[in-house]
């Protein structure tokens, strides 16, 4: 797929998609969005790069092995469950800080959990798409 237009615009759109994915992740608790949708959009960004510039470039831009993303995401999501245990609540009970931060809004363990979901979804899609679009299927 050697299209000049796609190559030129691809990265730009991918960057926009990434920003949009963060936006979805952060607003998810109150408005449509969330970690799952955000993760899919972020994955979409890397899929776009892969289609326009090939798997190696997409891998390089992602920077992390997708397999590691799976582990990191699961750990982040699981870690968000532990703070509740310290105050004697069941695992994964949501805990919130009431201050409203700029950009982030209210911060709490569910947001951390959602970030974990985001990372896992990004990892899953990238892993599947990269391996299907594998190096040998290039050119």
């Amino acid at each position: 797929m050697n299209s000049v237009i796609l190559t030129t615009v691809g990265r730009l759109v991918a960057a926009l998609l990434l920003i949009f994915s963060f936006f979805l992740l952060l607003r998810g608790h109150n408005l449509p969005g969330g970690g799952f949708a955000g993760g899919l959009v972020a994955a979409g960004a890397f899929v776009l790069v892969m289609l326009s510039e090939g798997v190696p470039t997409a891998r390089r831009l992602l920077g992390v092995d997708p397999a590691k993303l799976l582990g990191i995401g699961l750990l982040v999501a699981m870690a968000s469950g532990f703070p509740a245990l310290f105050i004697g609540k069941p695992f994964l009970t949501g805990m919130w800080d009431k201050t409203v931060w700029p950009v982030l809004g209210k911060v709490g363990t569910p947001l951390v959990f959602d970030t974990g979901v985001y990372i896992v979804v990004l990892g899953v899609v990238c892993m599947i798409v990269f391996s299907l679009g594998g190096e040998d299927a290039e050119d």
Binding site: G28, H29, N30, L31, P32, G33, G34, G35, F36, L74, A77, M78, G81, F91, L92, G94, W96, K106, G108, P110, L111, F113, D114, V117
Partner: peptide, 21 residues
């Protein structure tokens, strides 16, 4: 209970978070 207006997301990350995990 969960500080969120988006019910779908609240169910996913809070009420039924263990399922999501």
């Amino acid at each position: 209970l969960a500080n969120g207006r988006n019910v779908v997301n609240v169910i996913l990350v809070d009420f039924r978070a263990l399922d999501t995990l």
